[in-house]
């Protein structure tokens, strides 16, 4: 029986199968080596990129954690004098300033940016392409220019520094970031869902609100939180326009303070107590930014899981 089979001409399919399997098993050693080298390289890069992050965090914690207390977070600052050089006040004014400025800016920017994102994701037109280009450019704009813009158009017109001018600058900072994220998230929603909505007799806007945005929500939330994280830490856009205030003030039409601004001012001070305060604020800021960016990943992952 076997003799008969041996005498037959080799089956080309079997022959090809043999060659493929042999080549594959020869290559597997090479591939395993390659993948080990690559993992090594990736691991090294990861460690290298973690070094600055970890060392900054370590320094911040070492220098800043000592000043942080409930009073530090809520009280207004004390101006050190020659007699009372070591008085560390609080940063309540800057906390409130950041909260008001970034909060109101987010309230304006989020709905606006989501609307623009919807428009960009759903329309193919010259106008849409133009707006997309503008958004792209705005994202890359040096943020100090937003400050200059707010200075010229708000501060000079109203003849006053104000939280309001900072809100305008921060809004312009946030809108393009959220718009980009929103467009991407909305484009990721399967087209069949829009068709299903429209086929039920819904208006386009109802489908967007009732179907598309909820499905895109994880991506939208990530975009919003990341843009907030960026806004909270930005000094440049508000530096020129917010003025300065040592008192807690909720009125955005007055001059205000803000966390990144306080770091900038306190760190330039000759008093050790002020410098220590700057470390404290820096720690608060980094924690806020970390919470926002890690939070955004957590929330998004959770919502994606729920949708399934």
């Amino acid at each position: 029986m076997t003799d008969v089979l041996m005498d037959l001409p080799p089956d080309p399919i079997l022959e090809r199968r043999r060659v493929i399997q042999e080549t594959a098993s020869k290559k597997i050693g090479r591939r395993q080596l390659n993948s080990r080298i690559l993992s090594g390289v990736f691991g090294l890069t990861l460690v290298l990129s973690l070094i600055p992050l970890v060392s900054v965090l370590a320094t911040l914690i070492k220098r800043g954690v000592g000043v942080i207390s409930w009073g530090f977070l809520t009280h207004d600052p004390i101006q050190p004098t020659l007699i009372n050089q070591n008085a560390v006040g609080g940063i309540g004014n800057a906390m409130v300033g950041s909260l008001v400025v970034d909060g109101i800016a987010a309230l304006v920017a989020v709905p606006l940016a989501i609307l623009i994102g919807l428009y960009l994701a759903e329309t193919e037109s010259r106008t849409a392409n133009f707006m997309r280009a503008i958004t792209e450019i705005m994202t890359g704009l040096p943020s100090i220019l937003l400050g200059v813009f707010a200075y010229i158009y708000i501060v000079l017109t109203m003849k006053a520094y104000s939280g309001f001018a900072a809100i305008v600058a921060i809004t312009f900072l946030m809108v393009p970031v959220i718009t980009k994220a929103a467009e991407t998230a909305i484009r990721g929603v399967p087209h069949t869902l829009r068709e299903a909505g429209l086929a039920l007799g819904a208006r386009n806007s109802k489908v967007s609100r009732g179907v598309i945005l909820p499905v895109a929500a994880p991506g939208l939330i990530t975009g919003v939180l990341l843009s907030l994280a960026r806004a909270v830490g930005e000094t440049a856009p508000i530096l020129l326009v917010i003025g300065i205030s040592g008192r807690t003030d909720w009125n955005p039409f007055h001059q205000m303070s803000a966390l990144p601004l306080d770091i900038y001012q306190d760190s330039a001070s000759g008093y050790a107590s002020q410098q220590q305060e700057a470390w404290g604020i820096a720690l608060v800021l980094v924690v806020a930014v970390l919470v926002l960016s890690l939070g955004s990943r957590f929330v998004a992952a959770r919502m994606r899981r729920e949708q399934r």
Binding site: T192, P214, A217, R308
Partner: peptide, 13 residues
Amino acid sequence: GMVFQRPNPFPTM
């Protein structure tokens, strides 16, 4: 009304 080739229930609902 319309029913599509692939089932497409609204996933968040």
